[in-house]
């Protein structure tokens, strides 16, 4: 895989991660006001698991492949599998070991961060326009 592709994937992920962090912090602040510290930490845990999973997937997608369509496809599918597995394991650990968890706010942070990942598309579209 060439440098241009790596840069494009990294830039898109950075843009998505920035929006994910902003939305997670926003949901966490709302949770802090509504339900206290444990709810805020739960929201951050939900958002952080998605961000860490996305980072793991991005590292996997950036690994060199043959450059042929099927190799690229296989690499992307592997990245997605890694991403989902990391998210699931982090959620499992959070649910299992965090005693003061407020599940509703964790789901809120998780959903906000996952849906914000589409913001990276703006970067890719802007690059295409340029």
């Amino acid at each position: 895989m060439d440098k241009v592709t790596n840069t494009k994937i990294s830039r898109a992920f950075n843009k998505a991660a920035r929006w994910q962090i902003i939305i997670t912090v926003f949901i966490s602040c709302v949770s802090l006001l509504v339900a206290g510290t444990n709810a805020a930490i739960s929201a951050i845990a939900g958002g952080a698991s998605v961000i860490v999973g996305g980072f793991a997937g991005m590292m996997m997608a950036r690994r060199p492949n043959g450059g042929t369509p099927d190799a690229v496809m296989f690499s992307l599918l592997k990245a997605e599998v890694i991403k989902v597995l990391v998210i699931a394991v982090l959620l499992l650990v959070t649910f299992r070991y965090y005693r003061g968890l407020v599940p509703l706010f964790l789901i809120g942070g998780l959903a906000g961060a996952v849906l914000a990942s589409g913001a990276g598309l703006l970067t890719v579209n802007n690059e295409n326009d340029e």
Binding site: I9, A12, G57, A61, L76, E80, L91, I107, L121, N128
Partner: peptide
Amino acid sequence: TLQGKVFLLMGLIDAPFIIGVG
């Protein structure tokens, strides 16, 4: 170009599944 878009869109397609897992 398509590779970056596919990577991001995979995340969006998986979003309901990940929320469901949560």
